[in-house]
Computed example of a mutant assay.
Amino acid sequence: MPVKNRFAELLPEITEWRRDIHENPEILFETHRTSALVEEKLKAFGCDEVVTGLGRTGVVGLIKGKTNKSGKTIGLRADMDALPILEDTGLDYASKTPGAMHACGHDGHTAMLLGAAKYLAETRNFDGTVAVIFQPAEEGGGGGKEMVDDGMMEQFRIDEVYGMHNWPGKPVGSFAIRPGAFFAAADQFDIYLTGKGGHAAKPNETVDTTVMGAHVVLALQSIVSRNLDPVKQLVVSVTAFETGSLAHNVIPETVHLRGTVRTMDPDVQDMAEARLKEIAEGTAAMLGGRAEVDYRRGYPVMVNSEEQTAFAAEVAASVSGGCDDAPQVMGGEDFAFMLNARPGAYILVGNGDTADVHHPKYNFNDEAIPAGCSWWAEIVEKRMPAA
């Protein structure tokens, strides 16, 4: 079945919701306005139950089908939070909150799931129950984990869960997916180097942490080039180098390095963590200083279930005429926590020729709304066909 006509009719209304959310971005768990908007609309649509406060500011709406012989519940998840980025789009509905913008399209994800919820509440042409899940704090806050930890899957008896993300550079409304490991585990590290500060004219009397830090940054590159099996994936990136001085003539006492490690394999993750600590501590000691490493594991690898991925691809093909094989992505995605709790799948929908996500000029493409909404609705109607 192609894009549903109902979503073509609803496009102006869904677009209006999306642009209102875009204009009023909220970061991490502070999605109070957005959550209230979602709650209000779900109740207006006639959802059978609307629950708030899961994962702090998450919202879940339940929609019952015409029958429930299957006893099955499918979860559909959208993220709601924005990013701490200063918007540079020039849109007439650009962010009204300085330093915050919907630079990843979560405004579009929320609007599309609201559109699907409205349609499903109108038609109820399925056998079972739908849980529409609106999650805060995907961008580094682990809102998905908090909703799972709050017992969401058990409370609503969710059997399977499906997620979606827009994808710049892919034709509008087209889809791509892959089974198995899809998005990477995303870890963070901080390395604190201590030496002996002093006058830059007398480096022999110091233990130079700037030189120490430079050696550590370069040595960390050997984890990928010399410790990793070449057929596996690993990213080690140092993203900040902060010294204890801004003066031209002072060798600082301390240096702080910050960065991220991305992996697709738990064994590679273990190796990278161990080698990062060994290299930082060993390099610092070699140069007369010391290193303290704070390594924190973040989002796990996001793994699509085989059966649900095949089904999601079939639905995508019915909506858009095809579904491409997606490459693995070294970005992190906290939908991984929901897929760890229940079988399911995560799919990409094309956003067209736009700026990339997390860029100040990015904007969600409203032309993708009918395809995204149709995919959500078809997931429900085909997975739980009316009895």
Rank of each mutant, 00 (worst) to 15 (best):
L10W: 11
R226K: 06
D229S: 14
A317S: 15
G163I: 05
N365D: 15
A184S: 14
A36M: 12
M338V: 06
E281M: 15
L257T: 08
T52H: 11
G58Q: 13
R262Q: 07
F156V: 10
G144N: 06
N5W: 08
W376F: 15
V224C: 03
D127P: 00
A291G: 09
M153E: 02
T67K: 14
F241N: 11
A274E: 10
R56K: 15
G322H: 10
I14P: 00
K96A: 12
G163H: 05
I133C: 06
H215P: 00
G128W: 07
A280M: 10
D265A: 01
V148N: 07
Y299S: 13
A240V: 01
K277H: 11
D270M: 12
M164A: 13
F175S: 03
E9Y: 03
T57D: 07
A111S: 10
V60K: 08
A355V: 00
A82M: 04
T209L: 01
H248Q: 13
P12A: 14
G332C: 06
L10E: 05
N363M: 00
I133V: 15
C373A: 07
D149L: 06
L113I: 01
M286F: 02
N24C: 10
K196Q: 14
L218Y: 11
R56I: 15
E367P: 04
I27R: 01
L257G: 04
T354K: 14
A310L: 11
D334S: 09
M286A: 15
A176Y: 08
E139A: 01
E23L: 04
E333A: 12
E16M: 02
R157Y: 01
